[in-house]
Design a protein around this nucleic acid. Structure first.
Length: 424
RNA sequence: GGACGGGUGGCAGAGCGGCUGAUUGCACCGGUCUUGAAAACCGGAGUUCCCGAAAGGGAAUCGUGGGUUCAAAUCCCACCCCGUCCGCCA
């Protein structure tokens, strides 16, 4: 959510921003409504002032006669208040609705065009003597996953992991957590569910036809799409001492996505699934630190994939392609040799600087010396490891001609073996 | 799931229909004193919104949402949360 005052004072900028982001927003309508709201509030408050005055007069009344006259006056004011106030409430919630629909501002250097920008490509793509297998075939051959049983039990786009598949996932989680702890993050396991209001605060939309979110019947709980939601929610309505910032959390959770509208798009195997496990970086910071923090998160993501010996490229996401809360977003796309005819890039991480957009909705502020009152924190998130997709990258890049998979050195201590698919 | 008790400002903790945006203590900020600090004393201070160029004025806010009343932190209802006891249970 943006500050209404900011929108009023920078209407042209906000309009241009919405346009560039391809988010249809009627700023003029919003401002008109907001003006109407202000006028109504003034009116309502004047009535309330009179009500307060009348209430005071009541107890000062000298005779019963005078008293009942004043009370009658109070009754009339009350009726007037009720009718005016109902309208004011209506306009107020309409204003908030419109306000919620306006996306965050964007970093001046973020790509503006239709296309995302590849910032750099890192690592050598592996060479294979024959056509490499895709991860589904590798999983089948080595007994790492079972998609057929999952289809019976939960339907399409679920999976069981088995054998070394389980060990590989756990190794990836522990490798990511260890890396983040070394970077000063506090590991946190979070609930896999959250209230709809928390989802909304983070910018997710729990209801509606296009929603990516599962809801739990007869409750106001949703299955989370990422630990970003629960980590952000931890500090909802809190005021943080500036000396306690930054707060760096490494969240471990399951993630659930309905993938509505994704039918037919790369749905095979582990790439697009309804449930996966993810280690997520999350940071609350002061505004002056958020850009540096964003760069650092990106660097950590790169370090993790370098450790996995997986070639990747860094994508600076076009603002026409970013989610509403993001001010700037980088993705890592890993090389997946088994995808398509000759390998393809596949998104494996994403890091966003959401500035104060989520903080304003969730009421997360900080206070400190040198300034009066409180300010909104900046909030950033980034994927450390999304298990399914990281597994694809590892399995497809490190497959060997004998059908086994080499475990990258960084994972060996966590995996307890150097090769997947060999006895022992 | 059942029975109680409770949710008040940054924290602690009074108030239990009008004089209370709220006593008090701690913490906080400014000042006096001091070589400096501590102590003591004096003063200041919540948040959001509306009007206003500003000075300033006004409204709301005592878990959340409704209700009763001329008037509610205080009474009633629903919900959420937090304690304690009982039952059930990995």
């Amino acid at each position: 959510m943006l500050d209404l005052r900011y929108i009023r004072e920078h209407a042209a900028e906000v309009k241009a921003n919405c346009e560039a982001r391809r988010v249809p927003c009627d700023i003029d309508a919003l401002l008109k409504l907001a003006a109407e709201r202000a006028a109504l509030i003034t009116e309502v408050q004047e009535i309330q002032r009179q009500q307060n005055e009348v209430a005071k007069l009541t107890k000062q009344a000298k005779s019963d006669d005078e008293r009942s006259k004043i009370i009658q006056q109070g009754r009339e004011l009350k009726q007037l208040f009720e009718s005016k106030n109902a309208r004011a409430d209506e306009i107020d919630s309409e204003t908030k609705e419109l306000l919620k629909g306006i996306p965050n501002l964007t970093h001046p250097d973020a790509p503006r065009g239709e296309e995302n920008v590849t910032v750099r490509e890192v690592g050598q793509r592996p060479r294979f003597d024959s056509k490499p297998l895709d991860h589904v075939a590798i999983c089948d051959r080595l007994g790492l996953a079972d998609f057929e049983s999952a289809a019976k039990v939960t339907g399409s786009n679920f999976y069981y992991l088995k054998g070394d598949g389980v060990l590989l996932e756990q190794a990836l989680i522990n490798y990511a957590l260890r890396t983040l702890v070394n970077e000063g993050f506090t590991p946190v396991t979070t609930p896999d569910l959250a209230r709809a209001s928390i989802l909304e605060g983070t910018g997710y939309i729990p209801r509606g036809a296009e929603t990516q979110i599962y809801t739990v019947a007869n409750t106001d709980l949703c299955l989370i799409a990422t630990a970003e939601i629960t980590l952000a929610g931890m500090y909802a309505d809190e005021i943080i001492e500036v000396d306690d910032l930054p707060i760096r959390l490494a969240g471990l959770s399951h993630c659930f996505r309905t993938e509505a509208g994704a039918a037919g798009r790369a749905t095979k195997g582990l790439y697009r699934v309804h449930q996966f496990t993810k280690v997520e970086m999350f940071e609350f910071t002061t505004p002056d630190q958020s850009e540096a923090t964003h760069q650092r998160m990106l660097a950590i993501e790169e370090k993790i994939f370098q450790g996995l010996e997986v070639p990747y490229r860094v994508i600076d996401t076009s603002i026409s392609d970013m989610g509403g809360p993001a001010y700037r977003k980088y993705d890592l796309e890993a090389w997946m040799p088994g995808r398509g005819d000759a390998g393809e890039w596949g998104e494996v991480t994403s890091t966003s600087n959401c500035t104060d957009y989520q903080a304003r909705r969730l009421g997360i502020r900080y206070k400190g010396k040198g300034f009066k009152g409180t300010r909104f924190v900046h909030m950033l998130n980034g994927t450390a490891i999304a298990c399914g997709r990281a597994m694809i990258a590892v399995l497809e890049n490190h497959q060997q001609s004998d059908g086994t998979v080499r475990v990258p050195a960084a994972l060996v201590p966590f995996m307890g073996k150097e090769v997947i698919g060999k006895q022992g």
